[in-house]
């Protein structure tokens, strides 16, 4: 009865597709609507944070750092409250990672400062003796791509309905307004930094990658997640 299947490539393919699609549908579809609801008060990433997230992705920080606190006491003691599905509702792509060569970063904004990150990214061993993380000095000389950050935030807003420009919320505005905003944000971060080259660059109108990355890491905190 069945041996005809191995003699017919077309029906063989169909026979394979049936279990394959059922499994895929049952596994993925039902959870979709539910999992994509944001937690209450969750804020979108600002312009500088979006740019910083792009830097995080560009250098594959997620290859060594997770952003997922699992619900165990040992993890909540170490990193803070366990992660909730709704906290990721604006993360495109998700950045959970699959390996913790370094610690989890999902709540890093709650316990690290701009100053700490600046030292750490320039020379990890200066703040964490024995660290095997490489220094990221090139982030102090590469500038961020403001246009692409705007393109991403704008797409999030118009295609996916990310709540930018709401009262008391995160502003985006037009391209010119967004550009003004990102410089304001960068000034606030750079004020806490020591590196003179980064300060000089900002005065010339260039935002270095490190500034955006720090803004992003700082945003991984309760402040962005909880309604004010």
């Amino acid at each position: 009865m069945f041996s005809w299947l191995e003699k017919n490539p077309f029906f063989f393919t169909v026979a394979f597709l049936v279990p394959f699609s059922i499994a895929g549908l049952v596994e993925i579809v039902p959870e979709f609507a539910q999992a994509s609801r944001p937690t209450e008060g969750l804020k979108p990433y600002s312009m500088l944070e979006t740019a910083g997230r792009q830097v995080y992705i560009k250098d594959s920080c997620n290859a060594c750092h997770s952003q997922l606190v699992r619900p165990f006491k040992s993890e909540t003691d170490r990193y803070g409250m366990y992660s909730l599905s709704g906290e990721y509702a604006y993360d495109r792509p998700f950045l959970w990672g699959s390996k913790r060569t370094g610690p989890d970063l999902h709540r890093v904004g709650d316990y690290r400062t701009t100053d700490w990150h600046e030292n750490h990214m320039w020379d990890p061993e200066s703040v964490v003796p024995g660290s095997i993380m490489p220094a990221y000095k090139h982030m102090f000389s590469n500038s961020v791509d403001i246009d692409t950050a705007y393109a991403e935030a704008y797409t999030q807003k118009v295609v996916f309905g990310m709540p930018y420009d709401t009262p008391n919320g995160v502003a985006l505005g037009s391209y010119e307004e967004a550009k003004a905003l990102i410089y304001d944000e960068a000034k606030a971060i750079v004020a806490d930094m020591k590196n003179q080259d980064v300060k000089d660059a900002l005065a010339r109108g260039e935002i270095k990658e490190i500034v955006a990355l720090i803004a992003y890491l700082n945003s991984l905190s309760n402040e962005r997640r909880v309604a004010q």
């Binding site: 994509s36 792509p93 692409t148 991403e152």
Partner: peptide, 20 residues
């Protein structure tokens, strides 16, 4: 979508947990 930035850049159609 926006007319700005690098043409090779894109963002995932799914977000967060769904994307995972």
């Amino acid at each position: 979508v926006s007319g700005y930035g690098a043409w090779t850049h894109s963002i995932s159609l799914y977000a967060g947990t769904n994307d995972a």
